[in-house]
Nucleic acid binder design. Sequence first.
DNA 1: TTCCAGTCAG
DNA 2: CTGACGGGAA
Length: 332
Amino acid sequence: MPITRLSSAKGETYPSDERKNPGSETATDDCSKKVRVFVRKKRAKKTVLTTVEEVKHEILDQKPCSLPEIEDFAYGKDSSFPPLTHTPANWEKVLEGIRMMRSSENAPVDSMLSDVVCFVPRKEDLQFLYLHSCQAKQRIMLLMARAIQRLLQNNLLTAEAIEKADEGTIKDLIYPVGFYSRKASNMKKIAKLCLSKYDGDIPSTLEGLLQLPGIGPKMAHLVMNVGWNNVQGICVDTHVHRICNRLGWVSRPGTKQKTSTPEETRESLQLWLPKEEWVPINPLLVGFGQTICTPLRPRCGICTISGFCPSAFKETPSPSSTPKKSHLNKRS
DNA sequence: TTCCAGTCAG
DNA sequence: CTGACGGGAA
């Protein structure tokens, strides 16, 4: 079956879990010293941002490593030195808590991804077709699966076939999917573009993907992440956007204000989140956002990390029926 | 009736 | 920045 899913299976282990081994004291002391020197230098040059990734890259000479000293330093646990900018306290506990909640509850995203990526082998190459469902609802995702099935049955999964096919036919085949009309025409345009510029394949760069009609930052990063295995950025959808802001994980540059767009969230999040989390953060938070940290009436009562969440129990219960801005509002 | 989700057009 | 997009569910 050529359909690949982004959502990861439950019970997956993450690299950060393997970090807590007591290493040799001399090595970590040395590392700790290097971190201080490095950050001091950066700050002397008035470099605005110093990320955990950057420190690791410099100090550890590109070798993947997550020494506790760097993490502690980043979180501000080391009182002898100010924390790195933008790294929120307790983020690992929060992530771990969300993983726990996710493992005990099935979210729609687990059964079928909201963004479905199909790879269709043809000759020796991989042909690619994207279908994009904005809906996180299970119903739509089931319909999405059926839409793909129908496209498969009609041999409409190669750029050539899509290019030749009637737009109305495609429209009918993918029908109940959100924005099917626009998507059908985008599929035609993308097929034509891919045939003329990419030999029937899809572009393998972020820039190339973003040129395709209907492909924005969210889909482009998703395709880079799961399609090309080349992580250029975090795939930020509204769930990631919303939850990161509720947690206080992201902010507009130089302020404590919430980010206003997913793109802003992506850039802010990438400043401190370790790269090994860039891919798993999406299905993790999407599922969390579907089951617990919902846009409307988040279930703070059953959320195990509400103690770490600045927004816990602070959402207005019924925004639609009572549009009046009540007592609880933004802080100065 | 309102909202959903991402992208694009105005 | 605002709204359209297309259907269906809350």
